[in-house]
């Protein structure tokens, strides 16, 4: 089975923690005609890491690198959870039971009706796919995300 379809392209960008940097990144994406589907910002005192799911990952990556940003392409998994009490807890219960290491996660808001979509970066994505596919988890594939 092709598990590659579950790998959702994500772009991470290094930004300094100073005025206007976030805006500069979004401006580059706007000018490149890229639509942001989901994003998160992790920050420290000095710097931040912006992470995006976009409709055109390659275009976004090239545009950012071209404008002297440092970006990285990598893959995350998208998992749908019921938008009700205990939805996320049930999912995290499974992830814990399967002994998968989550490096970070964030949400994809308003993606599906009655469902929330969570994006997970696992330490080992292939192991995560294998274990999650055999669990009671709604793993979304690339096309699904594209059409959200």
């Amino acid at each position: 089975m092709d598990t590659e379809v579950y790998k959702i392209d994500q772009i991470s960008v290094f930004i300094e923690n100073k005025k206007g940097r976030f805006f500069s990144v979004t401006k580059v994406l706007k000018e490149a005609g890229v639509n942001i589907r989901a994003m998160s910002l992790a920050d420290t005192v000095d710097f931040g890491i912006l992470r995006f799911i976009v409709d055109k990952p390659k275009v976004a990556y090239d545009a950012l690198m071209d404008k002297d940003f440092i970006a990285r392409k990598n893959s995350v998994l998208a998992i749908a959870v019921d938008d009700e009490c205990g939805g996320l807890s049930n999912l995290l219960g499974i992830i814990t039971k399967e002994d998968l290491n989550v490096e970070y996660m964030y949400t994809f808001i308003n993606a599906l009706e009655k469902k929330a979509v969570m994006l997970f970066r696992f330490e080992d994505i292939d192991v995560a796919i294998e274990k999650l596919l055999s669990s009671d988890v709604e793993l979304l594939n690339r096309d699904y995300i594209k059409n959200v």
Partner: peptide
């Protein structure tokens, strides 16, 4: 200055 060798996608590695 950050470059591809000096930037990681996650905080743990970056730290």
């Amino acid at each position: 200055e950050a470059n591809e060798h000096l930037f990681f996608d996650d905080m743990k590695h970056q730290r």
